[in-house]
Write a protein that binds this DNA or RNA. Structure first.
Lengths: 201, 201
DNA sequence: CCATATCTGAACCGCTGGTCCAGTTAATAT
DNA sequence: ATATTAACTGGACCAGCGGTTCAGATATGG
């Protein structure tokens, strides 16, 4: 299954190989250097391709970083949609919210500079107007829904932005980079439980 | 009082005039354009001085933005330290926290792109290592103290970063720029009251 | 009115994200 | 096999950035 009727328009083999090489190179460089030192040029050199190829494939520096983030976020999205509680459906909203925020913190911690790099890419982009990051949009929608479910009287949309925004705060991000996601997770839990009410003891 | 014994080393008259012109020009440009379009060069042209002068006076783009922020934040700092409650000392921690966060939101709203511009300056700075913004440090210390006072059992330091981080979130910041600080203030209040407990009815 | 330390600003630097396009190459039809 | 063709490639190129430099202008103290 999954065979296209019109098998045309597939990605060419060399293009696919180069795309993987570029993503791997970017990954590696971000693991070793802060985002502002990882220029598109350096990624291209490390991947063994020309700079034009990177832009042809990903459109912009921002596009590259977004692709990298999507790769990492996919697993979490699936666990939320169809996995077991409390991350997946079935648990009360407070518990799902605490579990989800904890998972996001852990994901951010495991991926070091990536979140900061995407941020940096958006901040320095020269040509893109104001593109919303689809991963962030998905996370925000999920958090908003859980808050609304538990506390219909508050501004869930705004509070969801507020909570998720902590990933972009430098003091918190640097702790995440050092591998400590537990501290952020605990604070998420304190706020979520204060807002939605502690789950029945 | 306040007169220096050695009145030497005063700022030269033309230098002072130019400094004011630069700050005013930056202010004006930030009111009309997003931060990434307000380059140091453009500020210099608008102020009628050379680019070198701007750097001589403020050290870097980041230094310029920090100076601008300090100007605006000074008034709030004073109200917190010695003004009437609930902003100043005397009220219970919850009320002081809600009042302070509301004031910060309003300040951010009134100053449009400034917060984002400072953020942008730090993100794109080429020469500065990692300088902490003294205004932010002060705000963070205040929020941390208030949280600790009301809830000694939580990680006040982390939660303070989390709350203040919302100012850097693009979706929230754009609403602030449009003048709506009330929405953020209400969400701050919901979280603060959830955390510290609603003030006695 | 002079001496001089400070201030000024245009030219300059290295580097960035992004564009361009002539030439190469993989996939398909014959 | 070979021809056809559309997609891919990559290095030269660009405008713009933050930041540095330093010879000349200028305010100020004596």
């Amino acid at each position: 299954m999954g065979n296209n009727d019109r098998m045309e328009r597939r990605e060419r083999a060399d293009a696919a190989r180069n795309r993987r090489a570029i993503l791997r190179a970017a990954e590696e460089l971000l693991r070793l250097h802060p985002p502002e030192q990882v220029s598109v040029e350096r990624v291209a050199v490390a991947a063994g391709v020309g700079k034009g190829t990177v832009f042809h494939r990903f459109g912009s520096r921002t596009g590259l970083m977004r692709e990298l983030m999507s790769e990492r976020a996919h697993e979490l999205d699936q666990a939320v949609a169809e996995g077991p509680p409390p991350l997946g459906p079935g648990a009360p909203p407070v518990e799902r919210l605490v579990a989800f925020l904890g998972a996001v913190a852990e994901l951010a911690a495991r991926n070091g500079n990536l979140v900061a790099a995407h941020e940096h890419a958006v901040a320095t982009s020269r040509s893109e107007p104001r593109e919303a990051n689809p991963i962030y949009v998905g996370w925000h929608r999920h958090v908003t829904a859980l808050i609304t479910e538990g506390r219909p009287d508050v501004d869930a949309d705004e509070i969801a932005h507020l909570l998720l925004g902590s990933l972009h705060m430098e003091p918190i991000a640097s702790r995440l980079r050092a591998g400590d996601s537990a501290r952020l997770a605990r604070s998420f839990a304190a706020l979520a439980e204060g807002l939605l009410g502690r789950p029945a003891p």
